[in-house]
Each structure stands twice: as C-alpha cells, then as structure tokens.
C-alpha cells in the first residue's frame, strides 16, 4: 500500500459516510459574532430612509428655484407649470400643460433608478432593509433565496441604462452650478451647487457599469491604450464608490434643501 492509499484509508476511517458525519456543525445561534455587527446596517437603514423621506418631500415642495439657483431635485423641470418657472433647461418644456402631477416625478426616477440599481446601494439595502444578510456571518431570516436570478431582481441588470441617463443629469447639474457661479460668484449657494456637482460626477463616473463600458469588457488592454487609461482613472474613482455614494447623496440633499430654504426666504443673509 503506497502512502496515498494509506492516507485515503485513514481518511475513510475518520470520515465514514454516516449521515450525521456529513452535516455542518449544529450551532444553534444565529451568529457567534461578538462585535456590534448590527450598527452598520442600522445606520445605513436610517441614512437611506432619510433620503427617501426627503425625496418625497422635495417632490411635493414647490420652492425649487430662486435666481440663480435651481434645486437639484427639480432640475431640469420638463413641464410648463408655474412652479417650474426658472428651473427649465434653456426654457425647454417637452411635457405640456396637461401634466398636473409634481414635476419632480418626471425626472427623479432617473437618478433614483441609477442609485437603486447601483452595485454599492444594492449591497447596502440588501443588507440593511432585506437583511440578506444583515452582516457577514449573521444568518439571514429568509427561508429561500434566489438572488438576482429571476424577476423582479433580475431587472437590476439594466443598471447601465440608468448610468447613461445619470451622465446627462450630472451634466445638467454641472451646467446649473456653473451658471450659478457666473451669476453669483460670491453666493454660498453657488459653491454648494459646485461641490454637489463634483460629488455627483465622481459618483457617476466611478460606477461599475462605467468601468465596464470604458474598457472593462476588453481582454486586450494593450490594443486600446486610451480606453485603458480611462479605465485606470475610472477604477480609481470606483475604489471610492462607497464614500462617493454617501457623500453625493448627502450633498444632493443638502444642496436641494439649501436652495429651497433660500427660495422660501428662511435663509436670507446677503451672500446666501
């Protein structure tokens, strides 16, 4: 008997095929982790929930423009409604006066969809809202799991289309911020909008789909040096995707709230 046979024979003796010996360790608790694993999903839940609540309020609220600031949640306004006066892009209003619902509903679905299908946000809400899992090595409460293999979660695969729209929205927010700086260079709001645009662009171009589109789909980087360089730049942004996701989420909320408070006259100092 050679050494391998001896080893195999020994293994056979210590691992008989009895069903009990083919089981996992029957640890009866959900997790043996002793750290505060629940803290991150809790904070994430509160952060994302506050964004949702704010978004609903921003859609309903009509104070979305004050010269030269346009609230990011309302940009661009696509209707002829009076509440949109000043928030249209080049005065463009493709949706006519028949539209009676809040104008923000027409546009917020695009950046909202971008974030909803974003690979980072998927991680965060699968963990914090669906507890699938709440944290690593913490047993999830669901009896069955099919992931993103079937409807509705298979729709997450359209993320790249939302990315295309997000680039347009990012460009519009940048344009609005530049206009604000040109018209009111000393205005605090102008620079808040600039900061917001920078963070939004950083988040948008650090997207995993963007990384794939620039050159991730290639197997021969050396044949596409410009795309490879773009990919390396996007990869650097992508490494910061999580902090940029949070920073841009709070910046867009903060900038939007600031403009609305100025429009309502609640913030009214000279360089507001």
């Amino acid at each position: 008997m050679g050494p391998r046979e001896v080893e195999r024979s020994a293994m056979t003796q210590t691992t008989p095929e009895a069903p009990a010996r083919r089981q996992r360790a029957q640890v009866k608790v959900r997790t043996l982790r002793t750290d505060r694993w629940w803290l991150v999903p809790l904070v994430t839940f509160l952060g994302l929930s506050s964004f949702l609540v704010y978004g609903v309020w921003a859609i309903i609220d009509t104070s979305n423009f004050v010269e030269p600031y346009i609230a990011p949640f309302a940009a661009p306004c696509l209707t002829t409604q009076e509440v949109c006066e000043g928030a249209r892009l080049f005065g463009w209003a493709p949706v006519g006066d028949w539209y009676a619902l809040p104008p923000g509903l027409l546009i917020l679905g695009l950046p909202g969809g971008f974030r909803l299908t974003c690979y980072y946000y998927r991680k965060s809400y699968y963990r914090s809202f669906w507890l699938s899992p709440a944290a690593c090595a913490v047993q999830e409460p669901h009896g069955k799991y099919t992931g993103e293999t079937r409807f509705p979660l298979i729709i997450q695969n359209i993320h790249r289309y939302f990315f295309y729209f997000a680039v347009v929205i990012g460009a519009i927010l940048t344009y609005d911020a530049v206009l604000a700086v040109v018209h009111k260079p000393l205005g605090l709001g102008s620079w808040i909008l600039v900061l917001n645009a920078v963070l939004i662009l950083g988040y948008t171009f650090g997207c995993h789909s963007c990384r794939h589109i620039t050159a991730g789909r290639l197997n021969h980087f050396s044949r596409h040096p410009l795309r490879y360089r773009a990919w390396t730049f996007v990869s650097k942004l992508n490494a910061k995707h999580q902090p940029l996701a949070w920073a841009s989420m709070f910046s867009v909320m903060g900038a939007d709230l600031y403009v609305r408070l100025v429009a309502k006259g609640i913030i009214a100092f000279p360089y507001a």
Partner: peptide
C-alpha cells in the same frame, strides 16, 4: 445571478483580493 454583491467574500479574503469589485461585478457586467 445568485450573488447579490454584499461583499462578504471580499471582507474575509486573507489575501485582500477585491473579489466582488474586480471579479464578480465585472463578470456580471
């Protein structure tokens, strides 16, 4: 398709391989 990119694999990798960002998500794309 079962992977819902919660990144636990990346968190535990002792070689610090970015499994989710550099392998699973690019493969999903």
């Amino acid at each position: 398709g079962y992977c819902n990119i919660t990144k636990c694999c990346t968190e535990v990798c002792p070689e610090h391989i970015k499994i989710t960002d550099n392998a699973l998500i690019p493969m999903k794309e």
